[in-house]
């Protein structure tokens, strides 16, 4: 979190020096922001653009958490409270935007196709943030446990070299994949809840 805030502060300070034709650092920042913006706009739609900074934060935070595991730091997402907080925020957005944009039809959807299905529909809605949080938590934790076990159970002479492969697999590949999955599923949940045409 501190690293991301520091990066944001650096970007804010260097923004005055940004050029018309981006190079180096400016290019990387612009590419990241533009790629995420396009991705979020395609998935959620431009009318929800006020939510993009939140999901940009989620994306950057989860990805950087996984990448910081490479240097031996424990990923914050290996703690369920972190993933649960992010998933809970998604649930809150989903619920309030559903009511805001669909009003009665969103609440009626809990009673469809028959009022008897209300408990199941309610459970289904409540299960979404739980599944979202546990998916990320489980994946990151499994990678953390495997790496911790590797470091704990292997002799020192094999702890230099082979773990790079494991870090690349669990932290970079799985980390990137789980980040993408968490964000796109969150966006889809919100879109399904808020978009009456879905």
């Amino acid at each position: 979190m501190f690293f991301l805030l520091l990066l944001a502060a650096v970007v804010r300070l260097r923004l005055r020096c940004f050029k018309e034709i981006p190079t180096g650092f400016q290019n990387a920042i612009e590419a990241a922001v533009e790629a995420f913006d396009n991705f979020a706009a395609r998935t959620l739609g431009e009318r929800f653009s006020y939510l993009f900074p939140w999901f940009f934060m989620a994306f950057a935070f989860i990805l950087s958490s996984s990448l910081f595991s490479i240097v031996g730091l424990r990923a914050p997402t290996a703690d369920w409270t972190t993933t649960a907080a992010l998933a809970f925020a998604t649930f809150v957005f989903m619920f309030f935007l559903g009511i805001r944009y669909r009003k009665g039809s969103y609440l009626r959807s809990f009673f469809e196709p028959h009022p008897i299905f209300f408990p199941m529909n309610l459970l289904g809605e409540l299960a979404k943030p739980v599944a979202l949080s546990f998916r990320l938590f489980g994946n990151v934790l499994s990678g953390t446990i495997i790496l911790t076990l590797y470091y704990a159970l292997t002799p020192y002479f094999v702890q230099l070299g082979p773990p790079a492969l494991l870090h690349g697999f669990f932290d970079v590949l799985f980390g990137g994949l789980q980040t993408y999955i968490f964000v796109i599923i969150s966006l889809m949940y919100i879109k399904i809840a808020a978009d009456s045409n879905w």
Partner: peptide, 9 residues
């Protein structure tokens, strides 16, 4: 973090 990143980045 979201406010910070949104405001500054």
């Amino acid at each position: 973090l979201a406010v910070g990143l949104g405001y500054m980045l």
